[in-house]
Design a protein around this nucleic acid. Sequence first.
DNA 1: TTGAAAGCGCTAACAA
DNA 2: TTGTTAGCGCTTTCAA
Lengths: 349, 349
Amino acid sequence: MTLEEIARLAGCSRSTVSRVINHDPNVRAETRERVWRIIKEQDFQPNLAARALAGRRSRVIGLVIPQPLSTIFTDPFFSMLIHGCALACDERGYYLMLSLVLRQANDTYHWLIRARHLDGLLLAPPLINDPFVPHLLDKRLPLVMIGRIPGRTDISTVNIDNIKGASLATQHLLKLGYTRIATITGALNLVGALDRLEGYLCALREAGIEPPSEYIQEGDWSEASGRRAMECLLQATPPPEAVFAASDSMAIGAMKAIQAAGLMVPNDIAVVGFDDMPVAATVDPPLTTVHHPIERIGFLAASMLIEKLETPPTQASWANVQHIVLPARLVIRMSCGQALRCSAHPTDV
Amino acid sequence: MTLEEIARLAGCSRSTVSRVINHDPNVRAETRERVWRIIKEQDFQPNLAARALAGRRSRVIGLVIPQPLSTIFTDPFFSMLIHGCALACDERGYYLMLSLVLRQANDTYHWLIRARHLDGLLLAPPLINDPFVPHLLDKRLPLVMIGRIPGRTDISTVNIDNIKGASLATQHLLKLGYTRIATITGALNLVGALDRLEGYLCALREAGIEPPSEYIQEGDWSEASGRRAMECLLQATPPPEAVFAASDSMAIGAMKAIQAAGLMVPNDIAVVGFDDMPVAATVDPPLTTVHHPIERIGFLAASMLIEKLETPPTQASWANVQHIVLPARLVIRMSCGQALRCSAHPTDV
DNA sequence: TTGAAAGCGCTAACAA
DNA sequence: TTGTTAGCGCTTTCAA
């Protein structure tokens, strides 16, 4: 079944059928309906390869996550992010292709891009000084980044307000009266981890507190790393009264370390997380954490990229650059002691 | 850069360049080398859409996992499976497209298949009586299944020996002298779960033991379900001395329930798992479990599908059907009591 | 061993 | 509003 055959059945030309399929408004309503009816009747689907060849676009966008496969497929964060991206693509008739970067990222993408297989790229979340990024820009391939990249304002980004989120978490601890507040950071080669650290530091400094360096422990987002970091913090003298972990997984690891040391959360040490993953609500005690709309970030990033792809480059390309920052908010549960109401919807999920 | 331009630079025709790229032996060695040199020099990649259109194949194969996204992206089992599939595709110049089935599975696949975007499909692991399967066969789309499907010998499959694996685990418990052996099954709408249950039952019956029905608890592979199932088992009178869980996640959940009840593993209750996930080696106590080559299964399934795609259908199609069953083996660690050596390589991972 | 030529099924500019 | 036409870049006979 081809356009030509549909055209014959509908008594019109191939072009008209093509116009109908591509929602060209320049088709008489009556003709449009007749053609659609035939298309449905015949259960016709246009050949993607032919469309891609003639139209010079594949309607496939790539999602690159520069992390090992085992991380991507284990951390629920990525599951939600991907879901959001996929929803946006689905809605607008695009396909999302996950980058399963097995060889050198450069090689694989170089290959897909040069082969014209991808119309655009989502990059999430980029490592600091990722050598891949300039590479991609050289190819003049439309790109939207999830997470910001310092010092580059020429790339569109969708991001959450990590600094503000971390501040909220830390301020919450301060309000509860804690002053010896430590942090477990994410992998510090990611901008998000640096931003969350900065938010923590800002909040403390505003309160006139300068944390000792041993109160800042680097993790890698994983539960195991949170546990290890907490074990170090327990050695500090004096040990902290409260800990802000830059991810829920690390917060949970920290809680386990605290409990393994025979101490209680929050009575002996209070813990706040970040991300508001589903588990945060079900651990014991339920984790106070910073909520942000992960799925929505993916959705927006993909939508923004598609928008870019479908906008003719009439304006200078720099004029199309956008930076979206979505707010984060605190969700207060039980892991920090008495639950003050600091937010309009403190228990939302 | 197109074939035509390469041809011009190499002083030959478009056809010759095409032959070189497609490894057609009917090209003089000298010509071949000259053309390859130019291709490398120019960093040329043939346009995928054009190849797909002219060649009537896309070199894209789909991987359908009929599970919610959140499961796919959380269970490390799928991460390994996907990795294996991706490796095989990569090696043979194919692309793996993960099915992000958001709408009705039927719709999405129907669409991709009819649009000629997929050359073939990997289906892993199918639900019992999945209505999707006959649908796909009707389309005469090459299909390889990961896991077996009872009562259909006309579809090629790659599977592990679940029955044997479960028997090994149960026999190990029997050899250690336990007789009150319970099981926590996987989701019983999956063949793999039924097979593991059967292996457990066979081993017990061979030993002349018929487990009471309350010793058989259904889980859904998740840690939480394992925990819940174990809580039920602890209520049984008498409670079991040992438990075979059909996945490591459920085994770990069961261990937590045992510990939460103030009992010890293995002193009070022994536990065996299945899958030999990375965590199995690191939990406390390290988990005795059944190892099987997940990544290799994915690799074989994809290789088999590609082989099928590249074999001209000269023989009757049923003659091409293959059923590969890979062996599973027991890995003995600490969760069952004294470690007898029951396997040639008991501690391999 | 090589080249010429005819498509693959669609899009999009142009003409009517 | 519709049809005509010329490709998109490749594969694949068929001839030479």
